[in-house]
Design a protein around this nucleic acid. Structure first.
Length: 593
DNA sequence: ATAGGGTTAG
């Protein structure tokens, strides 16, 4: 910087201020290549008598890079006022600014300038337009620009694919992907893979990934991160390990996002030790790695360890953020650490100046509610400074179900299904609360309301990975090639645990809501099918890992405990909320979930 | 003569 200033003074002495080539280099040096000199760049800019397009573009880019898109747009209009003609490099920049600033009107106007000034056929500019319209959710406009292009490159296709994917039209995105020329790079492959991952279509993401490998496209860190999420979604530890291994062997740089994806994958695939190992091995631990690890401990019910890790984080002077506290409070909630939870809820503001957000109140309602302090939890929902949203009330409703509080449950449940009418889980909880109290008429009414509103119960499914193959089961499903053997094994399993005290527990079941089956649907919940296949396919003593999309029901939970004892197996089940480690007839959640 | 567009977590 000091040298730059000297250099600058030389320029002034030599009377080169009017030389735009020289001044352009000066402005570029402080505007975009070094981070903190934009102020100086602007000072220099003000002294230049007649800046050219390059200099304007460079100042604009400086603003864009520093996340000041509004200023970038203002410089553009200044440029027009000074009658400096934009060039090929102007529009990608200012359109990017409109995009970042969500400046729809300006964006359209600048699109008009593009056409008027004769840049309508410039590829990079057209691509920027597509990207901008995609961001504005103007897919038709984006498509129009795309269709008008004479020469589309891989960026044009990627932007359009992303556009469809971003706004939920995954199948449309795939159509575009299939239509594009075969010269596909990692970026466009990642766009389509990420599209499937984000819509929870993990199997299809895997098939695409296989195709990508067949075409010898390099697996870069972006694809790796997307595929790790796919593994996480499916609970597919083996595949996840493979990706992790690939990353290590190929020296792919671990940025904080990729590190988080790996740690999260191991946590959510039930391999907490490995997650810790990766976490400990990071040479740089960003806040998200800490948060992720604390969250991992939380979902495995290791509240004390989560608190210890938090303390270590403070000792290492890493300032926690609001997510840290969401995870820490969740850890307390899942481990019955009521006093600790209260303490950290206060501490968050007192020690770190973080004001509680609605998520933190949600954690506290969950913490108190689960622990049976329903009245206090309810009081908190009334007294919190913002309106309790569906997740806060959902926590309270869940607590009402656990502690069989009909009155409060009915009140909250009714409120909730009006607040969040499309969420089938709320209806099911409310109906379960009624069923528990023997109020069958009300159960029927809830069901009718669901039907009237066209709300479908989310189908439960469980996944077990065996010999590298991901097996997926739905309740009562018979799609598996070995369905017959599996069902026989389920019967054997349930008979086997009966002498050890297994009594089918129908408390949580909504007979009226289960439609597919005539026999007892409990027996064929997806996790029982997955467990049966696991017992059939693995050697004695091997751990079974199962993940399911909904919460484990009480009956399956009880059955799993007994199966772990009778068959001498560790069974690790991931449900929607947390992990259950079944071992010797006990569960790590201590029946607290 | 200097510069520009598309991708990853929770």
């Amino acid at each position: 910087m000091a040298e730059l200033k000297q250099f600058h003074s030389q320029i002034i002495k030599l009377g080169l201020l009017a030389d735009n080539y020289v001044m352009g280099r000066v402005v570029k040096f402080c505007s975009v290549s070094k981070k903190d000199n934009l102020r100086y760049a602007l000072k220099v800019f003000d002294t230049i008598p007649n800046p050219d397009a390059f200099i304007y573009n460079t100042i604009m880019r400086g603003y864009l890079q520093r996340n000041l898109p509004r200023n970038c747009i203002l410089v553009y209009s200044e440029m027009l006022q000074e009658f400096v003609l934009p060039n090929n490099f102007t529009f990608p920049c200012v359109l990017g600014a409109c995009c970042d600033d969500y400046a729809i009107e300006e964006g359209k106007q600048i699109h008009a300038h593009v056409l008027k000034l004769g840049f309508g056929l410039h590829g990079v500019t057209q691509n920027s337009l597509i990207h901008m319209y995609v961001n504005f959710e103007s897919l038709e406009e984006a498509k129009r620009v795309f269709d008008k292009m004479l020469k589309r490159d891989v960026v044009s296709w990627t932007s359009l694919i992303n556009g469809f994917a971003k706004w939920g039209f995954v199948d449309e995105a795939l159509k575009v992907f299939e239509l594009m020329p075969k010269e596909r790079n990692s970026i466009v492959w990642n766009a389509i893979i990420a599209a499937y991952v984000h819509s929870n279509r993990f199997h299809e993401a895997f098939s695409l990934f296989e195709r990508m490998k067949e075409e010898d496209v390099v697996l870069d860190k972006y694809v790796a991160a997307s595929m790790l999420s796919a593994c996480t979604g499916l609970g597919s530890l083996e595949q996840g390990k493979w990706i992790h291994c690939y990353i290590e062997e190929n020296g792919i740089e671990l940025d904080s996002k990729l590190a988080t994806s790996i740690i999260d994958m191991y946590c959510k695939c039930g391999y907490l030790e490995k997650a810790f190992q990766v976490f400990n091995g990071l040479h740089y631990r960003g806040i998200s790695s800490w948060n992720c690890m604390i969250g991992g401990l939380a979902m495995h019910g290791k509240g004390k360890a989560a608190i210890e890790l938090f303390k270590e984080m403070e000792r290492k002077m890493v300032p926690p953020d609001n997510i840290t506290f969401v995870n820490l409070l969740t850890a307390c909630a899942h481990s019955r650490l009521v006093e600790e939870g209260r303490y950290y809820f206060q501490y968050m503001t007192e020690a770190h100046g973080i004001e509680p957000r609605i998520e933190h109140y949600g954690c506290m309602v969950d913490l108190l509610g689960r622990a049976g302090m329903l009245e206090e939890a309810r009081k908190l929902t009334d007294e919190m400074p913002m309106n309790p949203d569906e997740s806060v009330l959902g926590a309270l409703l869940g607590a009402c179900r656990i502690h069989k509080n009909m009155e409060l449950g009915e009140q909250i449940g009714k409120r909730l299904i009006n607040l969040d009418p499309k969420n089938s889980g709320r209806y099911v909880l409310l109906a379960n609360i009624y069923a528990n109290a023997g109020r069958w008429e009300d159960v029927a009414n809830v069901r009718k309301l669901m039907n009237d509103r066209g709300v479908k119960k989310t189908p439960g499914f469980s996944v077990i990975e065996l010999e590298g193959v991901v097996n997926e089961f739905t309740a009562g499903g018979r799609a598996h090639p070995e369905a017959k053997e599996i069902y026989a094994k389920v019967d054997e399993m349930l008979e086997g645990i009966r002498p050890f005290g297994y009594v089918p527990d129908t408390e949580g079941v909504l007979h009226e809501l289960e439609e597919e089956e005539t026999e007892n649907p409990l027996n064929h919940h997806s996790e029982k099918l997955a467990m049966a296949l696991g017992l059939l396919k693995t050697k004695p003593g091997e751990t079974l890992r199962i993940s399911k999309n909904l919460r484990v029901c009480k009956d399956c939970h009880q059955a799993s405990k007994l199966i772990s004892k009778v068959y001498k197996r560790e069974i690790i089940v991931r449900d929607r909320n947390r992990f259950h480690h079944f071992k010797m007839g006990e569960c790590s959640c201590e029946d607290y979930w």
